[in-house]
Design a protein around this nucleic acid. Structure first.
Lengths: 146, 146
DNA sequence: GTACTTGTATAAGCCAGTGATATAAATCGG
DNA sequence: CCGATTTATATCACTGGCTTATACAAGTAC
């Protein structure tokens, strides 16, 4: 049974806690008709600017047809636009619209408000230890994202 | 602009970090054809025993037809079974199968291994501060789940 | 026992993903 | 500079997973 005990124990501990946290965060997420991929793609477009469609499909970990269809829906809903790439006639450049930015900000605001409410229900010490762990958690996320 | 500054600032901080963490964890999740709801439902059945279909749909936050269909797929895939409720002729009791338990455990193991690998890449101090925050994060998850 | 309520199922429709394939633009070897 | 190949995107057919609306059978209340 023993095999790299320390690391695998930590992994199991963290996995168990993160499984529950993930489920909880899923329930906290705003229900405004954006799929997880749609929300993530919009955030990416807002934070890091226009992307080629192929860059988006790789970054979001979905197939290229899935991203083509997602961009079509985003465009139809006025959240993003397709444009040509002056440097490559085959490529499509996807850009977030003002409405898209507004939606991303609204989602973040609502999410933040919901989280603030929940944090409020914790003991000050619990609150503090979570705040203290945030930089490490962001590093963890960064590491996973490669 | 200022409105309950302290809490809303914490909420925004935590929201920003959790948004990224959530995305990262989503990428880390095993791709074995189980939807988020399917995985969550199986975990619930494993941890807390058989449930009536109506209890599952409420707990998982989906509509009743969605749960009927999910249970149908779980049954078809041999991961759960439908049974009668001796106390109520209308009700259906859903029970996880051995194959279902095995799948849940495999997922958790793979998830734990992946997380352990990532944690390994962090500095010891980061690792430690995350471990220290786990109980508070579990409490947070509990609070969200009501 | 009729009327109401509750638990589940069915139907129709949209969104979101897949693999296979098509097509146009770019690149490359001769 | 031209045919062959590669690259970027789109289209097609299909499945899964969710929704609302509705049907129906079993329990409950009078």
């Amino acid at each position: 049974m023993p095999r790299v005990i320390e690391v695998s124990t930590d992994g199991a501990l963290v996995a168990s806690a993160f499984e529950r946290l993930y489920e909880a965060l899923r329930r906290l997420a705003p229900r405004d008709g954006l799929s997880l991929t749609a929300a993530s793609t919009l955030r990416r477009l807002q934070l890091r600017g226009p992307h080629r469609l192929s860059a988006l499909h790789v970054a979001e970990g979905v197939t290229q047809p899935a991203m083509t269809q997602l961009v079509t829906r985003l465009e139809r809903d006025g959240l993003a636009t397709r444009g040509p790439d002056p440097a490559d006639g085959r490529a499509v450049v996807v850009t977030i619209t003002e409405a898209g930015r507004t939606l991303v900000e609204q989602r973040r605001d609502r999410y933040a408000a919901a989280l603030a409410g929940v944090l409020h229900g914790l003991a000050p010490a619990e609150h503090a230890v979570i705040l203290a762990a945030l930089p490490a958690l962001e590093r963890l996320a960064e590491t996973i994202a490669e």
